[in-house]
Write a protein that binds this DNA or RNA. Structure first.
Length: 730
DNA sequence: GCGCTTTGATTTTTT
DNA sequence: ATCAAAGCGC
């Protein structure tokens, strides 16, 4: 097989060609990392390594898909179609979770799982935790299931079993977690379910329990590559160490400045530890940046240098200096959105079509004002993330039906659908049949008889239950002779869900329900992509994809629209023009990070990631006040702005002049134009930072006529007559 | 027992 | 401001 190694600098070429032994590639932002990884894989194949001996782990499924396409393009071949499990013809590419799910799909019997296991997402986990707490008679109000889910997940990613946890637990809350954790584990096992963390930890457990299994995968995955290594957690790290132990052909690629998933257990020190874990590691630094202009790069370098927990490196580019970064301070989030629109229109007129723009924000909630403004000016946009498709109630309902068909022990799914649409099975009834449900696997008729004998259930409910059991059996039977898409139709109709949505009794909800039905059709069309395999396999693969997919995976850069997404979602992407909005203290950096230096550094890395997405132009903005939770919040400008050298930044302050005109023409309510001693015009708004001769620094909270309420850092809140007081704007 | 209204929480980021 | 879970009347 032939391939050409194209456009590689010396370091990159070395990274591609060093195929044997441990390699650590420290790849700065925009250093051509993807090019290196794909060429490396293609190079291996071209040198005769069978594709299936290669395991490449990426951060998203989307990245894996793209990688696959690029590798085959380099090899001059068509990428293989959707492949079932580990195929002989293609390199294995996927996220940790999807790779592990595939291993477990084949091997879970060795761990004692009775049935096809189901993957629990966060809301399923919450339901299971709630159930565990009820079993233990713990108050779900005092200890929120959400927090316990988080604690359990952290424990799992640190490879702490319930027993380990009991040794570690010291606080009252942790003692509660300890109890819930073991009960939760029992519930999940009984229900044939695994949560996200289990996918990794159970694979590890499998390898520990069964050395032959480990051995077979070790010899299968002869060449291992892990992208975004700085975002691996302890469990993932152990897994990799185990798999690579024999051949030691392990290539880790990462950048500790881009570690932004510490909150979910990622530990960028794994990157630093690599060299000691794998002796004789070849370290290759990629520091030449091919993405951004000098100005953008320099600004980003200066910002990230404020972090103490890092290994210094020097990203550089041969590229042009480029425009200065632009910073705009807006009045509020509407004004901020208008600024974004204004800039996009200017640039769009020149040459850049809409796909060259991305707006990055810290929290999904910030997308709303942007969305409204884009609608107002009729600009095409797409929001990545936010309310996810697979989290919509109707989708979860239909998926819950499929899950129950696939694994009838999945009680979280069963509970969701047993009375949806309403069929007269109440909470009380449900509680009583749960202990009997196990019999479903052995003998459905026995289950029915036992239910029939229960005295505490009404005849109506009994009949309803019997009908439901028959319905489920009918669905299961149809897996044998229907395609997955047809099955979804059959389920929607047979369960009464379709009628429930489309029956005309809900006249005012008609449109909403029709949209829901459309979503189900959309789900069906996704399912149809799996028609190449037997329905039982298709069902498994489909459910797996549904539970592991993220929204960025669906991001399609083909359509010409402005992208809106969180800074987290933007990792790995690049755009000609990048806007980072909401650069305010409490928002970006987020309020929850203010007290913890390590978290503050993670915020800074996140900002660094956001900045380095930009190829040509970078726009930064903040607001003086914004609506948050229905009330007005006033924040200081983000510290990150002040970390950018002045000479790289063009400041566009929200037109004091424009406001001056507005306010003097009679409409000024919250603002006062005045003259201070130096007879400079100051225009004070809530959010402005001021300096008072006596009280020092402060922030304007409220304006009433010429009286300002100012919060001083040293002296608390004072009311000040602004036209008399010795005060000036900072 | 069902479906609607009210309440209460909720928002950092996601596999 | 918005959305999901709990309460209340039919």
């Amino acid at each position: 097989m032939q391939m050409k190694l194209e456009n590689l600098n010396e370091k990159q070429l070395e990274a591609v060609k060093t195929t044997e032994g441990p390699v650590l590639i420290l790849a700065g932002a925009g250093s051509g990392k993807t090019r290196v990884i794909t060429q490396r894989i293609a190079y291996l194949i071209s040198r005769g390594v069978p594709a299936y001996n290669i395991l490449a782990i990426t951060f998203t499924n989307k990245a894996a898909g793209e990688m696959r396409e690029r590798v085959y393009k380099l090899l001059g071949q068509e990428p293989p179609k959707r492949v079932k499990y580990f195929s002989r013809s293609a390199p294995n590419m996927g996220t940790f979770h999807s790779i592990c799910a595939q291993i477990l799909r084949k091997e879970s019997k060795k761990l004692g799982y009775k049935t096809n296991f189901t993957i629990y997402d966060e809301s399923d986990q919450k339901a299971a935790v709630k159930k565990a707490m009820e079993n233990l008679e713990l108050d779900t109000e005092q200890f929120l299931p959400k927090n316990i889910v988080y604690a359990i997940s952290s424990a799992k990613s640190e490879l702490m079993s319930p027993e380990d946890y009991s040794r570690y637990a010291s606080s009252f809350f942790q003692e509660i977690v300890e109890k819930v954790y073991s009960e939760y584990e029992r519930i999940l096992f009984d229900q044939g379910a695994m949560d996200f963390d289990d996918l990794i930890t159970k694979t590890l457990l499998l390898f520990k329990k069964s050395p032959e299994t480990l051995q077979s995968y070790q010899s299968y995955f002869k060449y291992i590559l892990v992208d975004e290594y700085q975002d691996t957690n302890k469990a993932q790290y152990e897994l990799i160490k185990m798999l690579a132990q024999v051949h030691k052909n392990i290539c880790a690629v990462g950048d500790n400045d881009q570690s932004i998933y510490g909150w979910r257990g990622a530990d960028f020190r794994n990157l630093m530890k690599f060299e000691s874990d794998f002796p004789k590691t070849k370290v290759i630094m990629l520091e030449e940046n091919y993405r951004s202009t000098q100005n953008i790069l320099e600004a980003a370098n200066k910002v990230i240098r404020n972090n103490s927990l890092r290994k210094d490196k020097n990203l550089w580019t041969k590229g042009e200096k480029g425009d200065k970064l632009i910073y705009f301070q807006a009045r509020d989030e509407k004004d901020e959105a208008e600024f974004v629109v204004r800039k996009i229109r200017e640039l769009e007129k020149l040459n850049d079509d809409f796909s060259n723009f991305v707006i990055l924000y810290r929290t999904n909630a910030q997308s709303r004002s942007l969305e409204e403004t884009f609608l107002k000016y009729d600009l095409p946009y797409k929001i990545i993330g936010g309310v996810r498709f697979y989290e919509r109630a109707e989708i979860k309902d239909i998926v819950a039906y499929l899950r129950t068909i696939y694994n009838p022990m999945d009680l979280v799914a069963l509970e969701r659908i047993i009375n949806m649409p309403a069929r007269g099975i109440t909470e009380k009834t449900w509680r009583q049949i749960v202990p009997l449900w196990q019999e479903y696997l052995n003998d459905k008729n026995h289950l029915k008889k036992n239910i029939d004998r229960l005295k505490t259930i009404s005849d109506k409910a009994k009949k309803s239950l019997a009908r439901f059991i028959d319905l489920l059996a009918l669905f299961q039977k149809s897996v044998e002779d229907q395609k997955l898409g047809e099955l979804i139709d059959f389920v929607a109709k047979g369960s009464g869900y379709k009628d429930f949505l489309l029956s005309p009794k809900n006249e005012d909800k008609k449109l909403e329900n029709e949209a829901r039905w459309e979503n189900i059709q959309e789900l069906k069309s996704v399912a149809e992509e799996f028609h190449g395999m037997p329905t039982q396999d298709a069902l498994a693969a489909f459910l797996e994809e549904v539970s592991l997919i993220s929204d960025i995976d669906q991001y399609d850069n083909g359509t010409k629209a402005i992208s809106l997404m969180t800074a987290h979602s933007a990792k790995g992407l690049e755009f000609k023009n990048v806007f980072i909005v909401g650069l305010e203290e409490n928002l970006f950096p987020h309020s929850r990070s203010l007290l913890e230096p390590t978290e503050m550094e993670e915020e800074r890395r996140l900002f660094y990631v956001a900045m380095t997405r930009a190829k040509k132009r970078l726009f930064l903005s903040s607001t003086k006040q914004r609506m948050y939770f229905g009330s007005t919040q006033r924040n200081l400008t983000s510290r990150f702005i002040s970390e950018i050298p002045e000479n790289l930044l063009d400041k566009e302050v929200a037109g004091a002049l424009a406001r001056l005109k507005q306010k003097t023409s009679g409409s000024g309510l919250n603002s006062k134009i005045l003259q201070n001693q130096k007879s400079a015009i100051i225009d004070l708004c809530p959010g402005d930072q001021v300096i008072h001769k006596t009280f020092g620094e402060g922030v304007v909270i409220k304006m009433e006529g010429s009286v300002a309420e100012i919060a001083f850092s040293q002296f608390g809140i004072k009311k000040i007559a602004v036209d008399l007081a010795p005060i000036k704007k900072k």
